[in-house]
Amino acid sequence: MASTESRPVEVDTLSALTPESQAMLDELVEQSHWNQTAQDWAIFSRLGSVHVVRDEHKRIVASGAVLPLGDSAAWISLILVTPPRRGQGLGRAVFEHCLKEVQASGRTAMLDATPDGERLYRQYSFAALWRFTRWHRAGVGGAQTGARPHAPIALETIAALDGQALGFARHALLADLMAREDTDVVRHAEAMAIVRAGRVARHIGPLLASNEQAAAQLLGDIASSTADALFIDVPDDRPLMRDALCAAGFAPQRGFARMALGDAAPQGMTAFMHAVAGPEFG
């Protein structure tokens, strides 16, 4: 008689991204309806780690990733499970693997959680710091006539304000995002943003500004200068940004909670952060 005991889930760490593993990770993103690209996975592989669960055919059916940020924090993200294998404990297993890695490094574990994820992470004593909402605007027909709000910005300029907003530095991540051929680094008055390509929409973020009015104006300029579909993740306590989003044709898609484990979470000047880099990057 076959054993009815469930087998422990085996989590493997990818030593490198091969064309085969990359294709399976891309398929997992598509099945999960997320926006990440191969370049996003490459950041985790190069600067952090990628962990996977495989089925009996060696196909990747679940994933998780860890990205160290500065000396004090590490981001856990891309906890994805293929739809047919959900509800079997694979996501929990890969998350626990990621969490152990972060704890072994002595950094504070942080993440952005969907409502379903928040219920899971609270079981591990993660606490919500603040909340934000993903907004989406579908692509619009016809070419836009507005001037593209592009301006050369040094990495150190945007990294300095980003570090103040978050309480930790992430120069290598920002350098990677800014160096992509399809990325625009935009600036207007007292606001600046990175706009990069995604699987289904261009992503605006981080969007940093000394005040919300400047941030809202830059958002409007970006939206009016492109016909592409757009995503942006905006803190919930930004009424001017919310008004600008509605005026530009955005609609709220889903909520997130920024969460941290323990009392040592980095403290930044979050009033400078008007759109995050994305749930995968913080």
Rank of each mutant, 00 (worst) to 15 (best):
S3K: 09
R7V: 12
R7L: 14
P8A: 06
E10H: 13
V11K: 04
S15Q: 14
P19G: 06
A23H: 10
M24L: 11
H33S: 09
W34P: 05
I43Y: 03
R46D: 10
S49P: 07
H51E: 11
H51R: 15
V52P: 04
H57E: 08
H57I: 01
A65R: 04
P68S: 06
P84K: 07
P84E: 10
R85H: 14
L90M: 08
G91S: 06
G91W: 02
R92G: 01
A93M: 08
E101S: 14
S105T: 12
G106L: 13
T108F: 11
D112E: 15
D112G: 06
D116F: 10
L120C: 06
Y121K: 10
Y121D: 02
F126K: 06
F126S: 05
A128G: 09
W130A: 02
T145K: 13
A154G: 13
I158S: 01
A159N: 13
Q164M: 14
L166A: 08
L166C: 13
A169G: 07
L177T: 00
A179M: 02
A189V: 11
L207K: 02
S210I: 05
S210M: 05
N211E: 11
Q217C: 13
L218S: 03
L219Y: 01
L219W: 04
D221L: 15
I222Y: 00
D228V: 10
I232L: 03
D237A: 15
M241G: 00
P252N: 07
R254C: 08
M259S: 05
L261T: 00
M273Q: 12
H274P: 01
V276W: 00
P279N: 08
G282D: 09
